[in-house]
Amino acid sequence: MKSTASLERSRRTSTILTYVALIFGAVIMVFPFVWMILTSFKTVEESMMVPPIIFPTSLSPANFIKAVTSLPFTNLYLNTILMVLFRVLFAILFSSMAGYAFAKLNFRGKNILFGIVLLQMSLPSQIFIIPQYQMVAKLGMANTIFALVFPGLVSAFGVFFLRQTYMGIPTEIGEAAYLDGCNQWQTFYKVMFPLTGTSVAALTIFTAVFAYGDLMWPLVVNSDLNMMTLSSGLATLRGQFSTDFPTLMAGSLLAMLPMIVLYLIFQRQFVEGIAGTGGK
């Protein structure tokens, strides 16, 4: 019989190794963020020193003031919030309805239509940028909130994701509602939709995070600085030849604030949502 002491020892060794690995990973993940905070307080010279210095010499808010004055931050915040809000609302609305239909209704051409949804999911979104821009421009809607929201009106991923959720709900529940006198629409919104809470929360988080970080589309469609989002607005701080990194970092930090606050509030749902979708 192996002694319990040696068993205990080997278990402790493996625990220590696990922790070392996790701490190492955490440091790597956190490093860019910490570096960003440090840089946002440095002067331009300090930020470009070779070898690099770690800590800024003073904690002056100069870079933050510069960022706020050189960009219309109120507009950027507002535009971003509206874009995220509408994209989330539409993603939930349309993905839920389409997901329910694909999962629980029988109609002609269902499989072909769902195949198209899957196909769209497997294509890189960049290839849609030009046609989408042409559509928005033809509508005369460039430089509007609508333009920012447009590609997020429907989400192939959302449709697929909610279809899976609805597939997991026993058909008998819908049938019971039907027997209880619900029509198809009432069955959907009184009985089925309320059962998808966790998935809808996950979709909300995903859509919000993605919309928040989306750079390419806002940059393409809204060229007026006042109609830009935080991400595209910040991108304008990058010069063609040189970049004022401390100001960019200060601006980015300001742009991250709402997301950080939201994350702190919805931490649990965030983690569950990511675990639930099997993403990342």
Binding site: P170, E172, E175, A176, Y178, L179, D180, V191, P194, L195
Partner: peptide, 19 residues
């Protein structure tokens, strides 16, 4: 339509509304 047939059904898995 079922609601006009004056019937009620009990399912094997009960099919209660969870929420």
């Amino acid at each position: 339509a079922p609601k006009d047939r004056n019937i009620a059904m009990v399912f094997q898995n009960y099919a209660l509304y969870p929420h």
